[in-house]
Design a protein around this nucleic acid. Structure first.
Length: 575
RNA sequence: GGGCGUGUGGCCUAGUCCGGAUAGGGCACCGGCCUUCUAAGUCGGUGGUCGCGGGUUCGAAUCCCGCCACGUCCGCCA
C-alpha cells in the first residue's frame, strides 16, 4: 500500500538531503509538525547552529534557498530557525481523495508484513463474570488486535485459560459442596453471574475452615496428576462461566480466536520438562522441597527475589505453566504480545528470565494497564465489591437510549432508537476506556463513564452520521469533480487530516499505543464539523464544486468508519 | 525497605519514548449562533508554579539527580 503522505515525506527528505549536502551540513533529518498555518512539515535548524557557528535562522534561510520545487513541495519558508515546507495542496487533495475513495474499507491499511503475531489478552479466571476493572484488558487487547491486522500482520488473539489453578478448584468445590440456597443470587440470568456466588461462598469457607482448605488442596493435586474424573468435574464447573464471559465479550464486539488451556502443557509433560531444565540452571535452589530461581542478578529486587516454580509437593505453579505456554507460543508465531494488568509486572519479568535461561529467543512484548478502581477501593470478585461489565454495558445502552429518545423521539421508530442506543452505548464504553493511555490509573465514576458529551464517542459517531446523511440526500451525483476548487481552509485541513490516517495506524502499531487512534478520530470529527459549518454541500450551485465536496464527505465518512472499526466501535448511519 | 508506573487550570486528558516556535483538547462556568446538509453541533471568554527542588542545554512538561504524593508488586495465589 502506498499513500500520498509517504511519497510526500520521501520527497521532502530527499530534497533536504540534497540541500544539506550542497551546504556541507551533516546531520540526521527529523521532520516536525509545525504550528497551525506555518506549513505542513518543519525542519528545525537548531542542532546545526553550533556546528556551522551561525544562527538557526541564517541556516534556515540558506537551506530554504537550496530547496528545489518538486511535485509535492509548493514552497518553503525560513521562520524562527525552522525550514517550513508547504505541500502542493491540490496534488495532496486529489491524491488523498483518490486513495480513500478507491481503497474504501481498506484505506489506512498498511502493506502485508507476512508475520504472525499472537496477542494474548483477557485470560481471566473463569470463576465469575468480568468486572469493570478487568474490562480494560479485553478492550485494549482487542483494539491492538485490530490495529495490528490493519498494519498488515497476521494476527491471532489468544485467551490463556486457567483450568488448573486454585481459583477454578475453589469454584468447583463450591458448586459441589454448597447448597444453592446459601449463595447470594444474581439478578442476571447468565451462567457466569449464576455461579460466582459459589466461588465467593467457597472462598469464605476455605478461609474459615481448615478441612475445606485441605479438600481444595487435594483437588489441586488431583488436577495436576491429570486425574480424568477430576478434570471433567473442573471442566463442568468452569465451562458455563467461560461461556458467560464470552457472551459479555461478544456484547462489546470482541471475539477470541483461540482458547489455550493451561492443562495442555501439563498433559503433554512440557511443564515437567520446564521444571527439569530449570533445576539444572545455576540460579536454581531448593527450599523444603520447593524449587526456585534466584532472579536477583537479572535486575529483580525486593523483599524476596526467589521465584518459586514448584510447590514442596512437586506440583507446578501458575508461572511455571506460563513458561511452558510461552515456549509453545514462540513456536507458533513471529511475534508475541501480552496484555496484562500491572499486578503481573513481576511475574512477567520472572517468566522472561526463565525463558532466557531456557534459551528461548522470542520474548513476549508486554503491555501493562493500571487498574480501574472504585471511589471506595479496589474491585474484587472475591469480596463481591464490584461493578460488573454486564451492568456497565446495560447502563451505557440505557443511558444512550434516553439520549436518543430525548433528541429523536418524535422522528424515529422504537426499534431504530434501540438500535442506535446499542451502537452508541457500547461505543461509549469502549471509547472511554481506550482513549486514555493504559498506564494511567482510572477511577471509575458512573457520571464520567456515562458522559456522552465532548471527547466521547457520540461526537465521532455523530460526525459520521452527518456525513452519511449528506451522502444519502445527494442523489443527483455529478460524476465530475475538480479538487482544485477545494480551496476553503476547512476543506484543506480536513483532507490533510484524512491523509494522515495511515501514518497514525503505523504509529499506534509500532509504539503499542492504541489511544492514538482515539485522539486521531476526535480531531478528525472536529475538523469534519468545521467543514460542515463552513462548506455547504447540497445547496452548492457550482455542480463541480458540489461534487468535489461530496467526495470529501464520502472520504471523511470512510475514514471515520475505518477508524471506529479499529476501536471495535460501530459507525451509525443515523443517530 | 526495594522494584515498576503515574502526577499537566476546579475535574478529566493530549503532548513525554525521539528536548524546539504562543503547553493542545474536553467537562464545568459565562456570552453568541438553529427560516441554512440532524444544535449529540459551532464560535468567543474566564481559568495553568506542566507534583517539588536542583542539574544539563542556546532552549526542558519532555533528558539526568534528589525528594514528595498516589497506584501496584515483592505468596510454595493466579
Amino acid at each position: 500500500m502506498n499513500y500520498p503522505f509517504d511519497d510526500c515525506k520521501k520527497e521532502i527528505i530527499s530534497a533536504l538531503q540534497k540541500a544539506l549536502s550542497a551546504l556541507q551540513y551533516n546531520c540526521s533529518i527529523k521532520l516536525d509538525t509545525p504550528l497551525e498555518n506555518l506549513g505542513d512539515f518543519a525542519f528545525p535548524c537548531f542542532p546545526l547552529a553550533p556546528i556551522a557557528k551561525k544562527s538557526p535562522q541564517v541556516i534556515a534561510l540558506e537551506i530554504s534557498s537550496k530547496i528545489e520545487k518538486h511535485k509535492w513541495i509548493d514552497r518553503v519558508e525560513a521562520k524562527g530557525g525552522y525550514v517550513n515546507f508547504f505541500v502542493n495542496t491540490s496534488h495532496l487533495v486529489s491524491s488523498t481523495l483518490d486513495s480513500v475513495l478507491s481503497k474504501k474499507e481498506t484505506y489506512g491499511h498498511l502493506s502485508k508484513k507476512n508475520k504472525k503475531v499472537i496477542i494474548e489478552h483477557t485470560s481471566a479466571n473463569p470463576n465469575g463474570p468480568l468486572h469493570v476493572g478487568r474490562a480494560r484488558n479485553p478492550i485494549i487487547g482487542d483494539t491492538i488486535v485490530r490495529i495490528f491486522r490493519a498494519a498488515g500482520y497476521d494476527v491471532q488473539s489468544q485467551f490463556y485459560l486457567d483450568d488448573m489453578g486454585k481459583q477454578v478448584a475453589i469454584l468447583a468445590w463450591g458448586i459441589h459442596h454448597i447448597d444453592g440456597k446459601d449463595v447470594v443470587r444474581s439478578d442476571y440470568e447468565k451462567p457466569d453471574h449464576e455461579n460466582v456466588g459459589f466461588y465467593q461462598a467457597a472462598n469464605k469457607l476455605m478461609d474459615e475452615e481448615e478441612t475445606v482448605a485441605q479438600q481444595i488442596n487435594d483437588l489441586i493435586k488431583k488436577i495436576e496428576e491429570c486425574d480424568k474424573d477430576t478434570l471433567d468435574m473442573i471442566h463442568a464447573a468452569y465451562a458455563p462461566v467461560l461461556e458467560g464471559i464470552n457472551e459479555s465479550l461478544r456484547r462489546i464486539n470482541i471475539t477470541i480466536d483461540q482458547y489455550v488451556p493451561e492443562s495442555l502443557f501439563v498433559k503433554d509433560h512440557s511443564v515437567e520438562s520446564v521444571i527439569q531444565k530449570l533445576k539444572k540452571t545455576k540460579y536454581c535452589s531448593e527450599e523444603n522441597g520447593a524449587w526456585y530461581l534466584d532472579v536477583e542478578s537479572f535486575g529483580v529486587s525486593g523483599r524476596s527475589t526467589k521465584f518459586f516454580f514448584t510447590r514442596s509437593d512437586g506440583t507446578s505453579l501458575y508461572a511455571t505453566r506460563d513458561i511452558a505456554y510461552h515456549i509453545w507460543k514462540a513456536t507458533q508465531a513471529d511475534m508475541l504480545i501480552n496484555v496484562l494488568g500491572e499486578d503481573h509486572k513481576l511475574e512477567s519479568k520472572q517468566v522472561e528470565v526463565a525463558l532466557r535461561l531456557l534459551g528461548v529467543q522470542m520474548l513476549p512484548q508486554p503491555i501493562f494497564y493500571a487498574f480501574v478502581s472504585l471511589p471506595d477501593g479496589k474491585m474484587s470478585t472475591r469480596c463481591g465489591r464490584v461493578v460488573y461489565l454486564d451492568e456497565l454495558i446495560d447502563e451505557c445502552i440505557e443511558r444512550a437510549y434516553m439520549e436518543v429518545k430525548k433528541r429523536r423521539g418524535t422522528e424515529l421508530s422504537e426499534p431504530a432508537m434501540r438500535k442506535i442506543a446499542k451502537i452508541v452505548g457500547i461505543g461509549a464504553l469502549r471509547y472511554n476506556i481506550i482513549k486514555v493511555q493504559p498506564e494511567k490509573d482510572i477511577m471509575f465514576k458512573w457520571e464520567e463513564a456515562l458522559n456522552f458529551e465532548g471527547n466521547a464517542v457520540p461526537f465521532i459517531q455523530y460526525a459520521h452520521a452527518r456525513a452519511c446523511s449528506i451522502l444519502a440526500k445527494a442523489k443527483d451525483v455529478c460524476e465530475k469533480t475538480n479538487p482544485v476548487l477545494l480551496a476553503h481552509d476547512s476543506e484543506l485541513r480536513l483532507v490533510k487530516q484524512l491523509a494522515r490516517f495511515p501514518l497514525v495506524i503505523d504509529e499506534a502499531c509500532t509504539s503499542y499505543r492504541p489511544h492514538l487512534i482515539a485522539s486521531y478520530l476526535f480531531d478528525t470529527a472536529s475538523l469534519f464539523n468545521q467543514f460542515y459549518r463552513d462548506c455547504p454541500v447540497l445547496s452548492e450551485e457550482n455542480m463541480m464544486l458540489r461534487a468535489s465536496r461530496l467526495a470529501v464527505v464520502d472520504a471523511a465518512c470512510i475514514v471515520l468508519h475505518n477508524g471506529l472499526d479499529l476501536l471495535g466501535i460501530t459507525a451509525p448511519k443515523e443517530m
